[in-house]
Amino acid sequence: MIRFDDVVKRFGDVVVLDELNFSVAPGEFVTLIGPSGSGKTTILRLLMTLEKVTSGQIFVDGECLSHMQRGSRLVPADEKYQRKVRQRIGMVFQQFNLFPNMKVLQNLTEAPIRSLGLSRAEAEERALELLELVGLTEKVNAHPSQLSGGQQQRVAIARALAMRPDMLLLDEVTSALDPELVAGVLALLKDIASSTDITFLCVTHEMNFARDVSDRVLMFDHGQIVEDAVPDKLFSEPDHERTRTFLRAVLERG
């Protein structure tokens, strides 16, 4: 369960998120759409604790990301507290962010061993299962630099899953891929979404995919939610003119 409570995020004078309120239920697949610069990435980065809120609060399973209880007071979260909350959240980046100094297998086992405390054998077993799931069993000993973009993104997805997250944040995970590789990665994500009860928060410009897999779609503009609806409604008969013009623009672009 994710909840944003009057979240404001400013970079200098630029207001990126403006008193944002929304929540995501456990197991829900929520897609964020909206024009570039509308604050979608910032939302995911706030959740992943890569950025700090300017004001307001974000709750993950009832625990505040930015503050913790000390005695009867709320104090800014320390590293240890953040690591505990963060444990439930995984993220897949547009540019994959694989570790180039590790082979594929080690990319998948490093964090489970060091962060979750799994034994090497357990971590490798889990890694091999996940590589099978993403269809890259034969690349187990490859370096990330030897893989195509699509393969790297599959590894990145497997790497995030290896941490057994309750929630997965996807930031335009197919935007950096060659067109012919996009479908495969999307199919994989759909497969994962339907076979697990992971909560998804997904930023994408792939509208067919969003319509296909989402339980709910949030349309953003200027750091605010313009429209919040089930995909059939939002894509077929949006209430807002802004949503309509955005969807038209995306469709025209192809």
Binding site: T49, R86, F93, R159, M163
Partner: peptide
């Protein structure tokens, strides 16, 4: 991006 990858994987 490498730092952020580490944070997403909860490394110290």
């Amino acid at each position: 991006a490498q730092y952020e990858g580490c944070i997403a994987l909860n490394l110290t």
